[in-house]
């Protein structure tokens, strides 16, 4: 593997910590996207169909979560939640903050997608006697899902990138494990480039997954 101090040697030495960093990045991203999307669906439902006070409440939360930088959300959660004498670990605080960010964006995406379905679709479903949840399940959501897909994939990429901010509160995800390796071997350029490559591969996979889903949904046209 070459001599000590060369890139190949050092990356071989650091392979274990880099891989576990990358694995943590992916786990955190998956958790955030799953939790955020789940909450976001309900947020979006509330924004479209909720009574006015609920809409206003959700709208305010969404605006705040989208208007404040993610890093501030993370630090606020990390330092703030401890005040509630809840013992939050750094990764948990990070997942909570990023999920809030993700949920806010998903709510807006969901609202936009559902609102873009022509009103005639709802009326046709009503005309054959379908109830609210039936209309939603069989008529509105299958169509909205396709429109949500591209912004959802974008949010996914943003989340993967956003997990790097957790390095600031000491979560040893890919960026922090890279920095720890750099602190040992001083191969700054090479290791940052290597980490960037891993991020690009992860994000490229996310995009490919999105493209595959879009093809799956391409069987109909509006």
């Amino acid at each position: 593997m070459g001599d000590k101090g060369t890139f190949l040697y050092e990356i071989w030495v650091a392979r274990g910590s880099l891989l576990s960093g990358a694995a943590l990045t992916m786990q955190l991203s998956l958790a955030v996207i799953a939790i955020g999307s789940f909450i976001g669906c309900f947020g979006g439902l509330g924004l479209v169909y909720g009574p006015a006070p609920l809409r206003l409440a959700i709208r305010s939360v969404v605006e705040v979560l989208r208007g404040v930088p993610v890093l501030v959300l993370i630090l606020f959660c990390y330092y703030g939640l401890a005040l509630f004498s809840i013992d939050v670990t750094a990764p948990a605080a990070g997942v909570i903050a990023l999920s809030g960010f993700c949920a806010a964006h998903m709510s807006e995406t969901f609202r936009g997608a559902v609102a873009s379905i022509p009103v005639g679709q709802t009326e046709a479903a009503k005309a054959i006697g379908m109830r609210f949840w039936q209309r939603l399940t069989y008529v509105i959501l299958p169509q909205a899902a396709r429109r949500m897909l591209p912004p959802w994939v974008n949010t996914g990429v943003e989340i993967v990138k956003g997990t790097t901010l957790l390095s600031i509160i000491g979560v040893v995800e890919l960026l922090l494990s890279t920095q720890q390796a750099i602190a040992r071997n001083y191969l700054i350029i090479q290791f940052y480039l290597a980490a960037a490559l891993i991020y690009i591969i992860i994000n490229f996979s996310v995009s490919q997954l999105g493209a595959w889903l879009e093809r799956r949904f391409a069987y109909f046209r509006y």
Binding site: P118, G120, Q121, E123, A124, A125, A127, I128, Y138, V139, P142, Q143, Y219, F220, R221, Y222
Partner: peptide
Amino acid sequence: GMVFQGFNLFPH
């Protein structure tokens, strides 16, 4: 039953 001017078939 109701039939609409714009058909409103479910596209999916």
